[in-house]
């Protein structure tokens, strides 16, 4: 699943081997138990480290949860590098499908981005979107540029999958279609202004 060429765009990539083992073990347990409320003891045993090693790396439960959310988003739900902002509907479609394959992990990612400044960053790909839009549609005014980047960042997230599933009871393909459709709608007004 992680066959993406990975530019070092996320600081969350800086995990050492011990942290990697801890986070992988924690993610595994979240899926098995259906909750992120997993004891440090259980995580330590699964990771093959001592409980104190976890505390040394992640002083609090919240630190550990935010670290695992970033790890999950990067490792389990990586995005393909898209060369064009107009590929975002496809990127979003693929992301929705991968969230749907790992629902427990998708919920963890969604929830940790909704905690404000003390949580996980809610729009990790904002800079990439801005670069693409500036390169392809340089004539956009500030307000319009910002609105499009913000709307695409919002759609390209686990919360989209959560909301479409929860509020509308949509299936995997319905969610993927609807999210991709929404991204197309957001991009429609700038299609003719490329270059």
């Amino acid at each position: 699943m992680s066959a993406t060429s990975e530019p070092d765009d996320r600081s969350a990539g800086d995990v050492n081997r011990t942290q990697e083992a801890i986070l992988a073990a924690y993610a595994e347990l979240i899926e098995e138990l259906g909750t992120d409320d997993v004891s440090f003891r259980l995580i330590a045993r699964r990771a093959g480290v001592g409980e104190r090693t976890i505390f040394r790396n992640y002083a609090t439960r919240v630190d550990l949860l935010l670290a695992v959310a970033a790890w999950i988003e990067r490792r389990i739900f990586p995005r393909q590098d898209s060369p064009s902002i107009f590929d975002m509907p496809l990127t979003i479609r693929a992301a929705m499908e991968s969230y749907d394959h790992r629902p427990e992990l998708a919920h963890v990612v969604a929830e940790t981005t909704m905690r404000g400044i003390s949580g996980a960053t809610p729009s990790p790909r904002r800079a990439m979107l801005e670069e693409m839009i500036d390169a392809e549609v340089p004539s956009l005014g500030d307000a319009e540029r910002r609105a499009i980047v913000a709307a695409l960042a919002h759609l390209d997230s686990a919360a989209t999958w959560v909301t479409f599933r929860r509020e509308f009871g949509m299936t995997r393909s319905d969610i993927a279609d609807a999210a991709a459709w929404a991204a197309e709608a957001v991009l429609d007004p700038i299609r003719s202004r490329v270059g």
Partner: peptide, 8 residues
Amino acid sequence: WARMRTGF
């Protein structure tokens, strides 16, 4: 609201 406030 939360994403716009925190992320933007």
